[in-house]
Simulated scan of single mutants.
Amino acid sequence: MHEVKPTVPLLALSFFAADVQAGVGPFLGIFLQAHGWTPDRIGSVLTIGGIVGMLVTAPAGALVDASTYRRMIVALASGLSIVAALIIWIWQGFWPVTLSQIATAIGGAAMGPALVGITLGMVGRQNFDRQFGRNQVANHAGNIAAALLSGWLGATLGMPWIFGMSAGFGVACIVTAFWIPGRSVHPHFARGLARHDDDDASDIRAKGFSVLWRNRPLLVLAIALACFNLGNSAMLPLYSLAAASAHVADPSQVTAANIVISQVVMLAAAAYASRLTRRWGFWWILFVTLATLPLRAMTAAWMPPLWGLLPVQVFDGIGAGLQSVAVPSLIVHLLHGTGRVNLGQGAVQGVQAGGACLSPLLGG
């Protein structure tokens, strides 16, 4: 009997982790609106979750660097997503929903650096971009599956069942995380401590936290992504709310269609992201992703929800799909040899979250 390659459970984990990282997303706004919540109240709850996510991503990355129990970190993050989904299913008061968003934010913040660390420790720096590209294809496929299931469940059984599905994805994450053989993840490669894939880094010490703010390209990257998320993050929830308010179609199906369109494009973009970055370089690819934001915003502003659904989400898919591979790969490149790769991943995600958490507040 042939032993399963470690990358197989890694891809399975990436598939199910999609729902843990994103939570129920725009479906939450539709669900809360149906329970009498106003857009500004919904925006406030999402902002609280975003602030928590912003604050915990860098510490989560530092924990992934310091720990050799990265699969356990994934399991704990998944457990938080299960608890969050069950809370929303049972209670729709302001504080229970807020607590659920805090749990979702912490789980999502830990999941991102943990998946980067596991991948880097499994394949090394030289092959990281290729494998992480495959991971992201699986991740976007998981988002597509979750969105289709959510649309079907919301239309046939009711919106609360979407949260049950989210809890199921969290359970699957825990199972697939421990399916990965522990010995397949090299502890020094996983944090970018070894300078070369065949080095023994047992006597090398990680650099101090100051390596983050002394790295000017890393700072430029973080600021640019924060501005991108400030304009981008609230667009899909608000677009879905506009469709729901106009009563032009079933809200859960419109929201699912929004997600599926963007995720299909993201999947295609992620599949080619590694190849494109190797040909054109990281910065040109990132420039293309940033340019999609004003195009998406103008389309959303000038076209009614159903007519603008396709172009708005295509632009989102191109930008987010390329970023999902290019940004983690660039951070690995910039912090290679410091032993702080996952801290850098968390810090950049935290700055991104700063823009993302202000976006629904201003939009609402």
Rank of each mutant, 00 (worst) to 15 (best):
I204D: 05
V332G: 03
F315L: 15
D19A: 08
T292Y: 10
W95M: 08
G344F: 13
T98H: 12
H35Y: 13
A271W: 13
G108R: 05
G317W: 05
L63M: 14
A145G: 10
G117Q: 09
A62V: 04
G317S: 07
L309H: 02
G43P: 07
F209W: 10
A326R: 08
L76Y: 07
L334V: 08
I73A: 11
A34H: 10
V52P: 00
M298S: 11
I87D: 11
N139V: 10
A146I: 06
G50N: 00
A326E: 06
A291G: 13
T176Q: 04
A103H: 05
L238C: 01
S329A: 15
W307G: 07
G364E: 01
L290I: 08
A300W: 04
P6D: 13
A347V: 06
I223E: 03
H35A: 13
F16E: 01
D65T: 05
L230E: 00
S233T: 09
A291W: 10
W302A: 15
G192A: 04
I42H: 01
V185C: 03
G93M: 05
R183H: 13
L149F: 12
G339D: 06
T176K: 02
R71W: 09
P39Q: 05
G346L: 08
L63Y: 08
V211M: 09
L358H: 07
A85L: 02
L76P: 07
A353G: 09
N215Q: 11
D197T: 11
N258K: 04
K207H: 09
A190T: 05
V325T: 15
D198R: 10
A110K: 07
F169Y: 12
S245N: 12
R216D: 02
A356H: 03
V185T: 15
G231M: 03
L63N: 06
C357Q: 11
I90H: 14
P96I: 00
F228H: 14
N135F: 13
R71I: 01
A244R: 06
V171Q: 05
V351F: 14
F282I: 00
P113S: 09
S184Y: 12
G192P: 05
T68K: 09
A257S: 15
I174V: 14
G154R: 00
G182C: 03
F228I: 02
G53V: 10
A75I: 11
R278L: 14
R130S: 15
L55P: 01
S240K: 00
D129P: 04
A18E: 02
T47F: 11
A347H: 03
V175W: 04
L361P: 05
H336I: 07
G53N: 13
V264Q: 07
S233W: 06
I90T: 14
P160F: 00
G319T: 12
H336S: 15
W283A: 12
L157C: 04
A242W: 06
W95A: 06
V254D: 08
T156Y: 05
G121T: 01
G43T: 00
P251V: 00
H196P: 00
A110C: 14
M122F: 10
M72C: 02
T176L: 00
P311S: 08
V137A: 07
N232W: 05
N258D: 09
V116T: 15
C357D: 04
I30E: 00
A257P: 10
C173W: 03
N342Q: 10
Q345N: 07
V314L: 10
